[in-house]
Design a protein around this nucleic acid. Structure first.
Length: 944
RNA sequence: GGGCUAGUAGCUCAGUUGGUUAGAGCACUGUGUUGAUAACGCAGGGGUCGCAAGUUCGAGUCUUGCCUGGCCCA
């Protein structure tokens, strides 16, 4: 049977709106992005806030690296930042947010070199300047791509004026910071153990190293102990070529060692009968077997520490090699003694430096021993290697040799084996006491900023454990090596004066160079050096005034670690742009940034480099507060990786869900820990989105015909409306606190639950009767609409930071195309919405009663007695409400006062218009309320 | 291997200083619904709080160990 349309339907005030139920986010959001840019929403908000003299809130952005597409990690952190910036704007702050990019560094340079190779050429076919130009173009290409993706996230910001670390002004700014650190005596040149390719003749970064199987010549070598007859320390090594650089032997302090007296050996064995050999107890069997010892006696036992002070002779040079404790010595293999060549190993170098051993690297960049090396000087290490073994065999210090295949580091490009070389590098000193820091060291002063102390205010670390995390890193980190032997980066604009063996630290010189870089970019440095115009790098007359001969100067050709670039953005972005009327100008005496917000890996990265450079140059942290987030992991809590095949890209998600849903996913998660991503979780976000959207649609539909001047004063409203405003006051207060403390998921949760529980389940359901059936401008209806009107404004403004697309769509739907929600501030809570505790208590009881009644009605329904609540009559204690109010709240037809709660099928006649039961109906056939409403609104009382 | 950190219903989250049968929303199941209908209401089921010891009259909450993850180092 075809459904017949109720003739009264047309006389009802049913919801009316063009706001579609289906959002079509993937298609519509990009239009909003363009619209916001066209309207310059960001610029307008800022102009408005500045005109108001609003307080500043500066969230400073850690620049993403200008290479590749935005991934989920980017999406997470840029959405979080946008929540914060937008919520600050909404709260009335002036919150400048400037996007930026980290541009220099290896990854871009690699990509460019890769491109060059594809052309069948090598980087040597190009000048450094040409390489840099290509790097610059490459970075710019990705900046354009990332900018589009970033904007698509819905991020508000100063898109017309982003910062780039490769902009000339920023490059100059980076040099200025270097100059400050040099002037403060914090920069020095020293040695560092680096991975080196003798083929490419260059130091390699960690990421350029691969591991491959390599066959090495292993040797057991005897070191004669001084003051003892035929008694030896035995070492084992896979790199015989490092023997000329041996300076010491390391033992493990807590291992037991034994002395074995050789009493018999095989014919091939090099072990001599009568020799006494020291070896770790755990490794003696291996030594005996490998070296062909057939008979022996254990003639001594002692702990590692007992070797302290022992001295041996180098196997083929006339010099000592003393025994030292080695933190890295294990008894997994070898002999429990490790030969130390400080120039040729990470741990060796560290021990060598701590113990004051000779660190000089006697191997040249091309792998040839220099002239200081006796016997083997001028020979290539790989070729000399066998000769070294032969020499030791001849002089009797070799105990055994064999070939051994193991995993060995090679250059990812040439696949040639790498070596460790101690090379000269530039460092920032962590432990140098300097006058500029009140006689304290950079490490001490930075710790004061982290933990609070001295005259420095403690940084607020959120979550709290961040404090300990970065603190323990600063406590234990070595000096900061800031030099790189590369092309794409800001030069270390330092001159070594060979004559005085000092560096030029005059700030005037740095400023002069910075000015040149401001004009010409980083090429200003190299181009003058290469053209032999070094004197141009000095202010006019400076050389003569300071009696410096330009020929004595050795201008450095290294570039800076890119962590200096981004680590100094507090200076060349924030401080440089903070003058009167400029973007970051602040008069509140706070640090340059209120907040840095990044993933927790940045305790080692950007938070770390930023606080060090800021303390080094300005004696204080660059930020008041640091908020960290976790990482995006899959539904099982595992990280995304190619090998697991569980990765997702924001670009795919945008096509299936749209950004507001992705943003809801972020908002619903506690980002202080890792946040999970799965299809199931995204389904939850989609469901939540639909709830919000339908709430908006209900509000818009029922506000049809309403306008601001019809709004009713709170005091004139029915109690139910007052109660709802009271509840709204409560939830908005909660959300404010949540935003203020960056607990976005609490804000989301409070608003979502409010929409579900207070609105959809209760208020909307209860008030549909009044909204649909009362006269259009009846008091009850206008009061209700006034509440809906506040709800519309509060919900859109409070949700605007989280779902900017949908809230703006909603807001403009009601307030007009030219009124963006993003130009507003939070709507409410207004003081007169709040009621006293007794009022709240009474209404909470009403809701409890409602639950009890509903349970009873549900049983009635199960018996098939009733369908909708309007079929029901209820008896209950009125408890201070009128029967009329109970009818409204329970959406039932009849209420009678009684002792307990009972429910029954309503009696009388059902009004065909509002479905409520009445003992009598009006003459027109509808109930008296409907009858009046029909008359007031000018409908014919009897439906045609 | 070291530092930091987490593990409460299918999902996302609450659970103050240890104290009554561990909560919420969503999802799920059932059901109602000619007026929010790819929407909405009502009701219901669902957790030995990662595991194992220990402290305590009493532990999701404290201690130790283990398991499984995450970030950063070596």
């Amino acid at each position: 049977m075809a459904k017949e349309k109720n003739p009264y339907s047309d006389t009802l005030n049913l919801p009316q709106t063009d706001f579609p139920m289906r959002a079509g986010l993937p298609v519509n959001e990009p239009k909003w992005v363009h619209r916001w840019l066209d309207e310059d929403i960001y610029g307008k908000i800022r102009a408005k806030r500045m005109a108001e003299g609003a307080e500043k809130f500066i969230l400073h952005l850690g620049p993403p690296y200008a290479n590749g597409h935005m991934h989920m990690g980017h999406a997470l952190t840029y959405v979080l930042k946008d929540f914060i910036v937008r919520s600050k704007f909404m709260a009335g702050y002036d919150s400048p947010y400037v996007p930026g990019w980290d541009c220099h560094g290896l990854p871009v340079e690699w990509k460019v070199e890769e491109g060059i190779r594809k052309e069948g050429k090598t980087k040597y076919d190009y000048s450094t300047k040409e390489i840099r130009d290509r790097c610059r173009a490459y970075a710019n290409k990705w900046i354009d791509v990332q900018k589009g993706e970033w904007q698509r996230f819905g991020a508000l910001g100063d898109w017309d004026r982003p910062y780039k670390t490769m902009d000339y002004a920023n490059e100059a700014g980076i040099v200025r910071e270097l100059g400050k650190m040099v002037a403060r005596g914090l920069v020095y040149k020293g040695l560092r153990s680096t991975m080196w390719s003798t083929v490419e003749e260059t130091a390699l970064a960690e990421a350029e190293v691969e591991y491959k199987d390599k066959e090495s010549t292993c040797i057991y070598v005897k070191f004669a102990i001084e003051g003892k007859e035929n008694e030896y320390i035995v070492i084992w090594t896979t790199t015989p070529w490092t023997m000329p650089s041996n300076r010491a032997i390391a033992y493990a302090a807590d291992e037991t060692y034994v002395a074995l007296k050789v009493e018999g050996s095989t014919d091939e064995s090099l072990a001599k009968v009568g020799d006494t050999l020291w070896v770790a107890a755990k490794l003696q069997e291996e030594l005996i077997r490998t070296c062909g010892i057939t008979e022996f006696a254990t003639v001594g036992t002692q702990q590692g520490t007992d070797f302290d002070g022992w001295v041996t002779k180098h196997p083929f040079y006339e010099r000592e090699s003393k025994l030292l404790e080695g933190f890295h010595v294990t008894t997994d293999s070898g002999t429990g003694f490790v030969h130390i060549a400080p120039a040729h190993g990470q741990e060796d170098f560290q021990i060598g430096r701590e113990q004051g051993l000779e660190l000089h690297c006697p191997v040249l960049g091309n792998g040839v021993y220099d002239e200081t090396v006796e016997i083997f000087g001028g020979q290539h290490i790989w070729k000399a290697q066998e000769k070294i073994v032969d020499l030791m065999r001849e002089n009797g210090s070799l105990l055994h040799t064999y070939k051994y295949t193991h995993s060995y580091p090679v250059s990812w490009r040439s696949k040639s084996p790498l070596i460790f070389r101690a090379t000269p590098q530039w460092f920032i000193a962590l432990d140098e006491k300097t006058e500029a820091l009140n006689g304290k060291t950079l490490r001490e002063k930075t710790l004061e900023a982290i933990y609070g102390g001295g005259d420095l205010k403690k940084v607020n670390w959120v979550p709290e454990y961040g404090e300990n995390r970065i603190g323990s890193m600063i406590k234990s980190r070595p000096d900061w090596c800031i030099s790189r032997q590369r092309a794409w980066g800001v030069p270390i604009t330092v001159f070594l004066n060979r004559k005085t063996d000092s560096i030029i630290d005059d700030p005037k010189v740095f400023e002069h160079i910075a000015k040149l870089i401001e004009q010409e970019g980083i090429d200003a440095w190299d181009s003058r050096i290469e053209a032999g115009k070094v004197e141009e790098l000095f202010p006019a007359g400076w050389l003569a005034e300071n009696n410096v001969n330009v020929d004595d100067l050795d201008p450095q050709r290294d570039i800076m670690d890119v962590w200096i670039d981004s680590g100094t953005t507090h200076a060349h972005v924030l401080r440089a742009d903070s003058g009167e009327g400029q973007r970051f100008h602040r008069t509140d005496g706070k640090r340059p940034a209120d907040l840095y917000q990044e993933g927790s890996d940045q305790h080692r990265g950007w938070f770390h480099s930023s606080i060090l450079t800021s303390v080094a140059c300005y004696d204080d942290a660059p930020y008041e507060e640091v908020v960290t987030s976790g990482f995006v992991v899959d539904g099982e809590g595992r990280k995304f990786s190619k090998s697991l095949g569980n990765g997702v890209e924001p670009r795919e998600l945008l096509d299936t869900y749209g950004m507001d849903i992705i943003r809801l996913w972020v908002a619903s998660s506690d980002y202080s820990e890792d946040i999970r991503y799965s299809d199931e979780i995204m389904k939850g976000a989609s469901d939540a989105y639909r709830r919000f959207r339908n709430t908006f649609r209900f509000l818009l539909g029922n506000l049809h015909g309403f306008s601001a001047e019809k709004a009713m004063d709170v005091t004139n409203m029915p109690e139910l409306e007052q109660y709802m405003l009271h509840r709204l006051h409560k939830v908005l207060t909660e959300v404010r606190t949540a935003y203020d403390t960056y607990k976005i998921h609490h804000a989301y949760r409070a608003l979502y639950d409010f929409c579900n529980t207070e609105l959809s389940n209760f208020y909307f359901d209860v008030r549909k009767d009044v909204l649909y059936c009362d006269a259009k401008e009846g008091d009850r209806r206008l009061a209700c609409q006034t509440v809906l009107w506040h709800l519309l404004q509060s919900l859109t403004t409070y949700l605007a930071p989280i779902i900017p697309f949908t809230t703006d769509e909603t807001y403009r739907q009601w307030f007009g195309e030219n009124e963006s929600v993003h130009m507003q501030t939070f709507h409410g809570p207004e003081a007169n919405w709040q009621k006293d505790a007794a009022f709240e208590e009474q209404w909470n009881n009403v809701l409890n009663t409602r639950d009890a009644v509903n349970q009873k009605i549900e049983s009635l329904r199960a018996e098939g007695e009733v369908g909708a609540n309007t079929d029901v009559a209820v008896t209950l204690p009125l408890n201070g409400l009128t029967a009329e109010q109970w009818v409204e709240v329970l959406v039932v037809s009849q209420i009678a006062e009684g002792e307990g709660v009972t429910v029954a099928k309503a009696s009388g006649h059902k009004c065909p218009r509002c479905w409520m039961y009445h003992e009598t109906l009006a003459e027109s056939g509808v109930c008296t309320r409907c009858d009046e409403a029909l008359k007031t609104d000018g409908h014919t009382t009897k439906a045609a």
